[in-house]
Nucleic acid binder design. Structure first.
Lengths: 206, 206, 206, 206
DNA sequence: TATGAATGAGGATTCATTCAT
DNA sequence: AATGAATGAATCCTCATTCAT
């Protein structure tokens, strides 16, 4: 039993080190050596605990994904109202401080590599699908069916856009602004769904 | 004169090849060999026309940046109304088919590498700044001062979010949807600026 | 402890291999591959033990320099008479068989590269200076002050000249001849210092 | 006829450039590019006038050799006395300023490469042999037969030694000192040939 | 004649990985 | 369990050389 514990402990250590290394040096400049150095062990040890670099990186991305999923889960009450669920997602995705140092930069680096990496890509696809269905499901309870899709796409894009922006241009805004704008977008979409809304027809007139 | 032409022609060819290679294999797996193969020349030729891989990649990103800038410029009439300018930016950034094949994927790959690459980062910063100021300037003429910032941040995030999504999940939406949602976001923001708007105060009550 | 030993041992092995490679192929045709082949290891190992070719070559020249210094030191008695010191230097520099195979040819090759190589040059300068001061010091005790410089320059040139000649034209003389001529040059210089020497004034009459 | 002239002119230009390049960058760092740059032409031209780098370098060394031979020839009177010949050789080999800028450094660089280069080596052997025979011949007329060899070897070594020293340590002596010491060595050797010389027996007693 | 275009061979170096300890 | 030793593959790059103009 302790054997397993030691093994898991080491693997976790190495995953943490991988996140930091990817965050600090980028994915292309992350080598077993940089990861091992970050963890304070020898490079050979990495190959000992993971079946190669590939597996370690896959485990690392998986950790990032699960962290986010956990964060959202913790923010949602047991039986959430639709709007509560959406708000929790917004708050989790755009929280001011990431749970794990380096997580955001690491996310960024991985994300660019996904299309060339079936294993990593499928991990990402998985979570994506769940997000999508959660958001859509909640919106369906708040909006007429023909407006769900636009609201869903818009909200998702806003979250992604702010999420990206925080490392392109972190000083250009506050995450609290981002969250407020997302919440308001929901407000507007829902309010706009009211039949009397003046602006509802305007886009076409542009 | 033809000498210069040949040189420029080859350099352009190699930049095109670099875009395709980065798009197809990702940035970490783009080597002088993959670029040369894409261009149908020998790897040594790349070093002959560019002062190393660095310079080629910098030139490649610069090309991507300039292409976008040109695309926007062409869509904007000589003396645009504020709203025309914003619409042109939306259309250019979220057009259905990119001007250059591979451009978007290449951009994605570069973007992840920017934080570790001062040269590339500064290229990106440059265009970013111009975008920002153009969008803000137009919004100032359409909205009360205290609402400009949120509209700007929201629009920018939406564009980025859709832009990213097109390669995460291209089959999940149409770019025409994306453009429509962005335009409508502008509509909503402008309409919301009208004093009578019902939903204007709601976010704070959340 | 054994760890350090292995490392030092390998480094020494590689330095030996470098000497042989430089001796056999010349400095320009000595590559990591030739050195590794000489040592019977893979080229990558060289980069593993030395921080690049530069460092290995510097270490190699340093070894050559130290070997010579040690050789001289061993030939000099604890408290040498001036003449004993000079004789020991002559014997060490012009001994019939070099301590280390290839040392002489390697030295030759390095020497031509020195002017373009500040690091190597400084190593060589170091030993040069010590030689000079040792020889001069001994001569001062054997000769009137105004004759020290010529004797020093002449002896030094003779040693260098024979040293070089042994690889330009090794079959044209015996090292024992070289040593004898050097010793005799000293004899002549000292004897010439005696006031009664007949030939002492002759140079000017030439 | 002018064709030939142009060809020879270009070849000479390139040889001069090669000497300068070798002198400035060393032999290992002399490439067709550095030579061409020195001559102000394109690298391809070098291959046009010489059958490859090899031939150019051989021609370059040959030029150096011939220059020295010419210099000596010019210093020797039509029907020289033995001592005149020896003095002319000393003066030519150890003149204060080389005829051609860069010649000495180029010599030095080539010389280290000779053992690995049959073509160059044979050029050098040729001149060496002539030197040897000239010096020996002259000494035979000045010394008893059993002393010729030592005087020859000593003189030759002195010249070589000073010649080398001028680029190891040029500031440590004047070439005029070198010449004086060589001349005096001849004086001493000749004077020492007198039967009564005191120091004649001393070397053996050492 | 002279040049830029183009390439193949080879060099130093880095890296993931395996092995023996 | 953990590490240094060792290597083969691959990368960027340089260079001599050939070719077409």
């Amino acid at each position: 039993m302790p054997r397993v514990k030691v093994r898991d402990f080491r693997r976790n250590e190495l995953i943490d080190a991988a996140i930091m290394s990817v965050a600090n040096h980028g994915l292309s400049d992350t080598t077993l050596t940089t990861i091992a150095a970050q963890a304070g062990v020898s490079p050979a040890l990495v190959s000992h605990y993971f079946d190669g670099k590939e597996e370690l990186l896959a485990a690392t991305l998986l950790r990032l994904v699960k962290d986010l999923a956990n964060d959202i889960k913790q923010r949602v009450p047991p039986e959430p109202m639709p709007r509560q669920l959406l708000d929790a997602i917004i708050e989790a995705c755009l929280e001011s401080r990431p749970l794990r140092p380096g997580a955001i930069m690491a996310w960024r680096a991985f994300w660019a590599q996904l299309p060339y990496h079936p294993t990593l890509a499928s991990i990402q696809k998985m979570i994506n699908k769940r997000f999508r269905s959660n958001i859509r499901h909640a919106l369906k309870q708040l909006l007429p069916g023909d407006q769900v899709e636009d609201a869903y796409l818009g909200l998702y894009a806003l979250i992604d856009g702010f999420w990206i922006r925080q490392f392109i241009d972190p000083e250009s805004f506050e995450m609290s602004d981002a969250r407020r704008i997302c919440h308001r977008f929901l407000d507007m979409s829902i309010a706009g769904a009211a039949p009397s809304a003046v602006w509802n027809a305007s886009p076409q007139t542009r």
